[in-house]
């Protein structure tokens, strides 16, 4: 397992390097002086000039591009992500909160998504052509033809503005510190974005789960299991489901991946202060260093998801490890 994981990690290295080149290209493409964007503009005149010169030195802006790239990577790895003009704080301190919020949202959605698509997908495959199968197929078709923001707006309209059950968006403000009431209200704010993203990801994934399960149920070993007289439950869950798990785990990982991207829109609709919401804010405020840091962050999250996917494959399908 370890060897397999190490192999996968090594194969990710060129991808990571290429991504840093892309992001470095972004830094160079952004309007403005990269060195000036890296330092606190509120410093006193002489201190600022000194800091600016030091940063120019550090990034070697007068040197050829490859040297600049290496220096930029070095600075980034050391946590020198620049100065966020919008927040007037170092970018490093600004991005932690959105990262936390996006992770929480996505973890909740992933848990709910798996909890829903597995039983329903299996049910659809087993009771092929039944009313519930048809219903979920239509749900899936309409769901993935729907812009994600439309689902969000509809939920706000219905649950927040008409029925007034939940807040329409935003995040709670803790006036009295983080007590119990704060966490309860925090959960209330979390429900709508989670619901919205869950609906989208279910719609995208459920029919693939169904197809994977159908494929597994059509195999010869299922007939063998049935002819042995095994109870149907054992046939489905022990024989078919385990074999369907390989494509299913691919689907789930793909949809987690899509979620990372799609949550930018949902975060914006519900004003959930995650990476996507902060990115839109930073772009609108021309806070370019923050923009670059957030892009780097979301890409790193995606790569992490990729590695987790590889580990999952290794667990689900022992054959992969041997290859």
């Amino acid at each position: 397992m370890l060897r397999y994981l190490a192999k996968r990690l090594i194969s990710m290295i060129p991808v990571v390097i290429a991504i840093t080149i892309v992001v470095f290209g972004m830094v160079k493409a952004m309007p403005g002086d990269p060195a000036a964007m890296m330092i606190n503009p509120a410093l006193k005149e002489e201190q600022r000039i000194a800091a600016y010169n030091a940063m120019r030195e550090k990034l070697s802006l007068d040197k050829p591009l490859p040297v600049q790239y290496v220096k930029w990577v070095a600075a980034t790895v050391q946590g020198d992500l620049g100065w966020s003009a919008m927040n007037n704080r170092p970018v490093r301190d600004v991005i932690l909160e959105p990262l936390k919020n996006t992770l929480i949202l996505n973890v909740f959605v992933t848990v709910f998504q798996i909890a829903i698509i597995l039983p329903i997908g299996v049910m659809m495959a087993v009771k092929r052509g039944s009313f519930m199968d048809r219903f979920w197929q239509v749900f899936s078709l309409v769901g993935y033809s729907m812009p994600s923001f439309f689902i969000g707006l509809s939920l706000i309209f219905l649950l927040a503005l008409k029925l007034k059950w939940l807040p329409p968006g935003g995040m709670p403000i803790s006036a009295y510190g983080k007590n119990f009431a704060y966490y309860v209200s925090w959960l209330k704010y979390l429900i709508l974005p989670t619901l919205s993203l869950t609906i989208i990801s279910i719609a995208g994934a459920i029919r693939y789960v169904r197809n994977a399960m159908i494929e597994a149920l059509d195999q010869d070993y299922i007939r063998t299991a049935r002819s042995k007289g095994l109870p149907e439950k054992v046939v489905i869950y022990s024989h078919a489901f385990r074999n369907a798990l390989i494509p299913i785990s691919t689907i789930i990982i793909m949809s987690v991946f899509a979620m990372l991207s799609g949550s930018a829109i949902t975060e914006q609709v519900f004003a959930w202060k995650g990476i996507g919401h902060t990115l839109v804010l930073a772009l609108n405020n021309r806070d370019y260093m923050l923009v670059i840091a957030l892009n780097l962050l979301s890409t790193m999250l995606a790569i992490t998801a990729n590695i987790v996917a590889d580990i999952t494959y290794g667990i689900v399908d022992p054959r992969i490890k041997l290859e």
Binding site: V15, V22, S261, A264, G276, N295, T299, A302, I303
Partner: peptide, 16 residues
């Protein structure tokens, strides 16, 4: 190259 493009989440990159 394909791996790189596919690894970057679409929406953040597109709006940037």
């Amino acid at each position: 190259i394909t791996d790189v493009v596919i690894s970057i989440p679409f929406m953040p990159l597109a709006i940037t």
